[in-house]
Design a binder for these strands. Sequence first.
DNA 1: GTCTATACTCGGATAGAC
DNA 2: GTCTATCCGAGTATAGAC
Lengths: 203, 203
Amino acid sequence: MAQRGSYAKGVAKREEILERALEVIAREGYRGASVKELAEAVGLSQAGLLHYFDSKEELFTEILRKRDEVDSRQFGPMPEVAEATHLRSGFVGIIRHNAEVPGLVQLFSRMAVDAADPQHPAHRYFLDRGDSLRETFVEALRELQRRGELTDVVDAGVLARIFQAVADGMQLQWMQDPSIDMAGTVSALFDALDPRNRKDPDE
Amino acid sequence: MAQRGSYAKGVAKREEILERALEVIAREGYRGASVKELAEAVGLSQAGLLHYFDSKEELFTEILRKRDEVDSRQFGPMPEVAEATHLRSGFVGIIRHNAEVPGLVQLFSRMAVDAADPQHPAHRYFLDRGDSLRETFVEALRELQRRGELTDVVDAGVLARIFQAVADGMQLQWMQDPSIDMAGTVSALFDALDPRNRKDPDE
DNA sequence: GTCTATACTCGGATAGAC
DNA sequence: GTCTATCCGAGTATAGAC
């Protein structure tokens, strides 16, 4: 099951399910939802939904994957965001968008914790996602450093980790108190790390 | 119950239980532990343990509180860490210490997600803890800004949020991959935000 | 392919004996 | 104050009919 190779089982339907699940969770939130709840929201019985996935954990992992896929379509493929000039606006834009879909933020954070267990289906997902995110970042950050728009006191790889951590950490704060400005705070970090903002007034 | 007022029920024992729980979780890790598991590890039956707490959620919330209490004893009371000069070393020290107690990091992160629900007993805990952490930080950060050791491009309150987010976010990354250097990365952020590191070589 | 029905497990809570 | 025993609900997974 779940294998796309050979003659996969209802791949199209599967994708459709994931997209619907995504909408539902984004709109109605995620509170440790059970398979049954999600199934009904998607218009299937619990058993019917699990027909397409091996387990609950796999199901939710696939939802996260689908989300990345959808996002990267909407916000332009990563390569584009990767361009140094658009890194900041692209990143901040995604975060601003996330503030519109609290359910997905919760799902992501919850899974991130559960997936700490190397046995969890989402474990590899998070590792790979982190790697690729930082890869994209490092490239763009290096370019910014070359241009003198970003501090070069710290290695770009470390800065990439920091940006990732800030984004994830701000989500935690925001879940407790949705009134805070996730995107604005991350944006401020770019300012704080821009050496040009610190030249003496008599430039 | 759980009220310290009037004639509390075995307050001493309660505290002892929390301290033991802390040790056990720190040492043996936390994998969404059940009350029963924890109870046995602490030398009680499930019912025996729940005699001291209203519910599982309340129990684990209290464990987090106890942890803060213990930590603040070990690392000097917050007021001391709050001193600008020691902010960085104090903060980084705590993070380094956290890397020695993975179970507590997991418990904290897990609870942070669950407590997004305003009904959760730990909801207030996280709000208050965040407030007080940032309060402490803001004071010290302002002093650093005055001394010219920290960028003043961004408001100290925002910087405080950023530091909190980085610490929390690095924990998530570290749970996935314990080989990364949480403390070192946070430390690097201090460097990156220090304007003195950016003066021209011909100072 | 999808449903209904059910089996099974786990975990939290509670009653009641000692 | 602590235990044993039990209850109950939730939730996943699976069997089997249609």
